[in-house]
Every structure is written in C-alpha cells, then in structure tokens.
Amino acid sequence: METLTLLALSFDALLNLSLLYLAWILLNCEDLLKAIVLFVAFGLLMALAWVRLDAPDVALAEAAIGAGLTGALLLTALAKLRVIETNKGTTQQLKQDSENFQTLHYMTPLALLLVAIGLGYVVFSMPPISAGLSNDVATNMGNSGVSHSVTAVLLNFRGYDTLLEMFVLLVSLLGVWSFGSTTSQHETTPGPVLDTLTRRLVPVLILVAAYLLWVGAHAPGGAFQAGSVLAAAGVLLLLMGWRPGGYLSTLPFRLILVAGPGLFAITAALLYLLKGQLLAFPVEYAGIIIFALETTATLSIAVILAALFLSEPPHSDKEHI
C-alpha cells in the first residue's frame, strides 16, 4: 500500500515537473515548429494530469480539443505563415518584444516571480477541506435527467453558460470568415500513408463520436468531446484534400452550423413561455431534452471546429466583397 502511494506521489511529481518544464521550453525555444509539437505533447500531459485529478471528462476534452484540434490549428497556421514569409521574403527569429521598455525587460521576471509567490501563498491558504458545490450537485442529480454529474452541470444546472458558449464558438467562426481567406494557392497532395490512414480512421472516429455522445448521459463523455472527435474526422478529410466547395454557403450547411446554439436558445425561450422559467427542463422530459440538445450541439460543434480548421470563408461571401 505504502509503496503504491509512494509510486503515485512520485508519478505526480514527475508529471508536474514535466508540465512546467515543457511549458518553459515550448515558450522559449528558438524553433516555432518545435514549440508547437511540444505544445501538443504538453496538452497530452495535461490530459494525464486531468486523469490523475479524477477529471476524466476534462481529460477527454483536453486530448481532443486542447491538444488535438488546437495543435492542428497551430500547425496549419504555421505552414501558411511560412508560405507567406517565403513569398514576402521575410524571416523571423526568436525576438524580444521591443515594444516593452528596456527597464521593464529586467523587471518583468522579478515582478512575475512575486506574483507567482503571492498566488502560491493564496493557494496554500485555502482551507484543506471544502465541499464546493458537490453536495448541491449530489442532491439535485435525481432531477437533472442524466446520471453523469458533469453532464448534469453542463447541460442543466449551468446550461445557460453552455448556451452562451455555443455562441462563442459560432462568433469565432463568423470572425474567422469575416477576416477572409488566409490560404495561398499552395495546396498539398496527401501521401499514400495519410490516404490509407484517413480511410481507416474516419469511420472509427465517427463511431467514437457517437459513442461519446451517447455515453455522456451516464459516464464521461458528451457533446463537446463527441463534437471534437467528429471534427477530427472532418480535419482528416480536409487534410486529404477534400474541399466542401460550394456546400459551405448552402442553407442546409448553415443550418447545421447554427442548430446547436439555435435549438438551445429556442428551447430556453419555449420553456420560459411554458413554465415561466428559462431552461427549466421538466424532470420527466429532462433526459430526452438534454439528449436532443447534445446531439444537435455535437453536430454544430463538429462542423464549426472543422470549419475553423479550414478557415476558408464560404464562396458566396467572397463574391460580395
């Protein structure tokens, strides 16, 4: 028993120090490509940390979104940036932000060290035992319509946060589209490995997404994890060179994009009219409402995330400009 605890402790210590070390290296290394690769590794280690902290839902979200999709976004952005730099004949080295005054340059590390020490002290000053809202969550689980507590918080107890969050995703896509195209003519053709990999992986990813969505009601999983896994399938297809072309601007496609946030907002409004309360799911229907909201949310999240990765505005928008 004691050796097990010791083992766990040393694992935690190792994990923690690696996290901090990786963060330091990735932020200060010369090569941006290396920095991004290390960032993905950092995300995977974070996912491990979430598992160690009994947060499997967060681990899934981190692995899929934090490490996976963010990593893919960063890598494509870097590739596009390299093309732009080659075209413009500019190169960049690791450079300090000369906007910040020279004196500041010596003082920032010191000031930040003080801030860190202060925050560390505050963290330690927290009472060692604090139930937080765990008792409230436990008491009300029976009325939430699901048996998995994180899903209950995300979709029911604090569903209003999630409603607004869906709009955050949507607004970022509208923003990306409104800035216009960032791709140069440069297109790559996938090698045979990627090709085969995609053919095998895409069906698997769709199955995994469906499973995560379904299982979210009673075990770790749910709309965001399922949506990002589904988005990963889309990203693979996009890497293969598949392009949605005109689809992006069609109404059905736009409907899928807004289905998640839209249905959420309409549900909120309807429930206000029927029950006099925003997002007050009737207990007997809560499970089915949450499942409907999560399913549409999964589709919207997947398509929005994949569209963010593509980052090309739909054609019809370009014509107007």
Partner: peptide, 8 residues
C-alpha cells in the same frame, strides 16, 4: 510579455 512573435 517578452516575445514579439504573435504565434508565441
């Protein structure tokens, strides 16, 4: 604060 490159 320290680095100029936006990606960083």
């Amino acid at each position: 604060i320290n680095y100029a490159h936006l990606l960083r």
